[in-house]
Amino acid sequence: MRQVEYRTRQHLLEEALPGQEGAILLSEEVDADPAQLLAHAYSLGLEGIVGKREDTI
């Protein structure tokens, strides 16, 4: 599955366990400046952020 594009993989994961809502949780897509996201995470007392380009494999 790791050779499948991220968007496709996300949909496959959502469908992997029918009737098991909540078994796999995926983060929402955020379209924002990474520096601003990091600053906001710090202001909330978080250690950082993890990001992934949606067009990657």
Rank of each mutant, 00 (worst) to 15 (best):
Q3W: 10
L12F: 02
I57L: 04
E14Y: 05
P34L: 02
L17V: 09
E28K: 11
A16N: 10
E29H: 13
E15T: 14
G48Q: 05
V4I: 08
E5Q: 06
A32W: 12
R2K: 10
A35N: 02
Y42W: 06
P18L: 02
I49E: 12
I24T: 15
G22F: 08
G48N: 04
A16T: 09
L26Q: 05
L25N: 11
E28G: 00
E14M: 11
D31L: 13
P34V: 04
Q20P: 05
L12P: 05
A16L: 09
D55Y: 04
G45Y: 02
L25C: 15
L37A: 12
R9E: 01
A23N: 07
G51E: 10
E15R: 04
T56K: 10
R53Y: 09
E21R: 07
G22S: 04
A39N: 06
I57K: 14
A35K: 07
Q3D: 14
E21V: 06
R7V: 06
R2E: 04
G22Q: 09
L46H: 09
G22W: 03
E29R: 00
G19E: 03
A35M: 09
V30L: 05
L37P: 00
S27L: 01
L13M: 13
A32I: 10
A39V: 10
R53M: 11
G51C: 11
M1L: 07
T8E: 07
D55L: 05
R53K: 15
I57Q: 15
R7N: 12
Y42L: 10
I24G: 15
E28C: 14
Q3C: 04
E29W: 03
I57A: 15
A39M: 14
Q36W: 01
A41W: 02
V4M: 15
V50C: 13
R53T: 09
A23G: 01
L17R: 00
E28Q: 15
G19F: 04
E28Y: 10
R9N: 00
L38C: 06
D33N: 08
S27G: 11
I24R: 14
P18S: 12
S43V: 10
G51T: 05
D55F: 08
D31Q: 06
E15K: 08
I49Q: 11
R53A: 01
G48P: 15
P34E: 01
